[in-house]
Design a protein around this nucleic acid. Structure first.
Lengths: 251, 251
DNA sequence: CGCGAGCTTGATGCCGATCAATGCATGTGG
DNA sequence: CCACATGCATTGATCGGCATCAAGCTCGCG
């Protein structure tokens, strides 16, 4: 198994030990524990004791798998995708540290999408029935969990707006702004980033072909908005990107 | 205020009285109470006592409104839409009897979309804090609520697949099949339906222009798949439609 | 070093957008 | 009851953005 390439990974920390409690996790301001009191978080600790490593290219879960747990990304980077019967597939999201995976599984007791690690990653396993029980006793946890699900719904609506009404340039600009904003919230630079996904995966997410993604990157570079070197992106003119968009949901 | 045009409405029942308890509501197999025991449902009754009438064209809530309640459609038909800063907007869903509105509001304590009645409608008001409390004491209710949220997420992923990778005909076919299936679950014919929305609203939902929607309807008619008279649709060849699609998520 | 996955760039074509005119149903006021 | 306005739907003609097809190119890696 390859070692975790911490220096090149979208993860603000290194793994000091095999176990890191929620209460001392530096992601607690981004993850499920947001807003919870110290005692509540300690309850979480007792539940979230298992961690799982997923090597780049491997699946955390796949369509049809029995649903048992949610997963919080601790280090690394994932994509989720659904596929149609005739083989086409659609990337429905990219998840980074502190974000939750597996919410789709609650509806049917089966997962309805694949979750693939785009780099060597580690997730915290959150057994769902335990989460349900615990959130019965801890109102704050319940509320936080509901907020996370709702946020996912709102995010999806934003993607629909993007897919339904924006043109290629707007889509890519919106995508980049979203990425940089999330990276910034995790303590990374808001201007320099390394893409963890291929042009094809970006295209799938944005409803474009990889060639169009590539051309649009080149166009942005010509216009001085970006510096593009393969997967290394430098945002030179974030305001310029923002002007292109104006298509994010109004709240 | 116009009277409820029950005969022409997507609603399997007439309103016998001002108050209908969840426990005796004929939508209980489609709505929040699914799978709940009799005593649990009676608890719901105590919470869901307020009903609200929304005339065609009016808004149940709009972007930015403070979030306080969820709404279960009792009679009628709604659309939800998000809009971008520059005015474009995107229909994110159509809701019929038994379906829940307002889940977007949980994330921020503000609604992030508009909900518009497409015909004179009535909703049951579900105060959110009460729902949270009640679902702490009734595990089945909690579970059911989570399933509904998760189902919305899964549905959204299906729409992303549609918007991201299907062509106009496939989109419209998928849309019609979805509508007829939901109507059938409510006891309506699976072949004859009346659209409650304009071509423009269908187009917005499907990421198409209204002219394209219209042309595609005409094409389907020429091919003998449908009979189209304005908003009255008769599905002549459901299998033909299904063959066009093959693009719904695989579970 | 050479292979291959992924990226870039060009040439061409098609699907759906756009623009525009007409048709159809409903409603309103003279 | 007719004339007219209005909102929605249909249909045609044209255009453009993105897909498609097809080379090369880059870079990491065995």
């Amino acid at each position: 198994m390859p070692i975790m390439a911490s220096m090149h990974s979208y993860t603000p920390i290194k793994l000091e030990a095999f176990k890191v409690a929620c209460s001392s996790c530096n992601l607690r301001e981004l993850c499920l524990p947001v807003g919870l009191s110290q005692p509540d978080i300690e309850q979480l600790d007792s539940m979230v004791s298992v961690r799982r490593t997923v090597a780049r290219g491997e699946m955390l879960f796949r369509t049809g798998d029995a649903f048992q747990s949610l997963y919080a990304v601790r280090t690394g980077f994932f994509k989720t995708c659904v596929s149609s019967e005739d083989g086409r597939d659609q990337v429905t999201g990219f998840q980074m540290a502190g974000e939750l995976l597996g919410l789709d599984g609650i509806s049917n007791d089966r997962h309805s999408c694949d979750a693939v690690a785009l780099e060597d990653s580690q997730v915290c396993v959150i057994p769902y029935t335990q989460l349900e029980e615990l959130s019965r006793d801890f109102g704050d946890l319940q509320r936080q969990f509901h907020k996370i699900m709702s946020r996912e719904i709102v995010r999806d609506h934003g993607v629909m707006l993007l897919l339904g009404s924006m043109r290629a340039e707007e889509r890519l600009a919106a995508f980049l702004l979203n990425l940089t904003q999330r990276l910034q919230a995790r303590g990374f630079s808001g201007s320099a980033l390394i893409l963890r996904m291929t042009r094809e995966e970006i295209g799938s997410y944005l409803g474009l072909k990889l060639e169009t993604v590539s051309r649009t990157f080149s166009k942005f570079q010509e216009e001085g908005l970006l510096e593009v070197k393969q997967r290394q992106i430098k945002v030179l003119d974030p305001e310029g990107l923002r002007k292109l968009v104006n298509g994010t949901p109004s709240c």
